[in-house]
Amino acid sequence: MSDHVLALTGVNAWYGHAQALFGLDLTVDAGQIVALMGRNGAGKTTCLRSVMGIEARRSGSVQLAGQPIEGLGVEAIARRGVGWVPDDRRIFPTLTVRENLQLVRGIAKRQGRQPMSVAELVEVLPIMERLIDRKGHALSGGEQQAVTIARALVGRPQILLLDEPTEGLAPVIVQGLAQSIAALPERHGVSILLAEQNLSFVRDVAERVYVLDIGRLVFAGDTAEFMESPELQERYLAVARSSGTNHG
C-alpha cells in the first residue's frame, strides 16, 4: 500500500485566476499503468504538468517514491526520475534523434542511473532503429511520438507521464504502441501515468482508471469496472450534446 511510485494528495492547480484542479487525490503503484481519462479540458494535461512542476500555481502534496517533490524545479523533478511525454511531442528540430537521446543520457549518468542503450530502446520501439540519425524536423507524427517516448525512457525514469500518446496516430500504429507500452513495467521497471481519451487503448494497457470532469475526480477504480459501465463512459467522456465539441 505504501509502495506508491507517485502520490498526489489534495492537489489544486490554477491558470491565472481560473482553478483547473480541485483537491485531486491520485496514486500510481510501482509497476502499474494508470490511466487518467476525461473530456478535453477536464484537467488531464494540467494534472501531468502539475506533477512535472511546469504549472505556475498549485497547492497540495506530490510525492515521488515517498519523497515530496511539489516544491522542486522542473529540472530537479526530471532528474529524480520523472519522464514527460507531452501531447504536442516537442522534438528539438535541429537535433538528430541520437542527439535528443544523448542529451538525456548524460544527465542520467550523472544521477547514477544507467541509461538505456539504443538496442534496448529498439526492443521497446522497433521503429527507432531506422530513425536514429534523422533530424527532428524530418520525422512524421508517428515517428516523433516514438522518439519522444524513447527520449523520456532512455534515462530509466521511475515513472513515465504520457499525455494522449495515440492522438493523431493511425490505428495500426496505435496497436503497436499499446504492445510496447504494456510491456514497459515488466521489462524495464517503469510505472506509467497515462492521460488518454482512447477507450480501447486504455483497456489494452491500463490496470486502474481515474476520471476527471471539470477538474474534479469523479471516478477511481479498476479498468474493468469502468469499461463495463457504458453509463459512466457516456457521462464523463461523451461529447456534450447541445454545444458541439468541448474544447478547453
Binding site: 526530471a78 528539438f92 542529451l103
Partner: peptide, 24 residues
Amino acid sequence: SGLGMKIRAVAHDRTTARALGVRA
C-alpha cells in the same frame, strides 16, 4: 559539444529541455 546540444535544446524549447533534466 554536449554543452552545445543543451544550448540548442534550451533555445528551441526551454520547458521541454528542463523536463528532460537540463538545468536551463
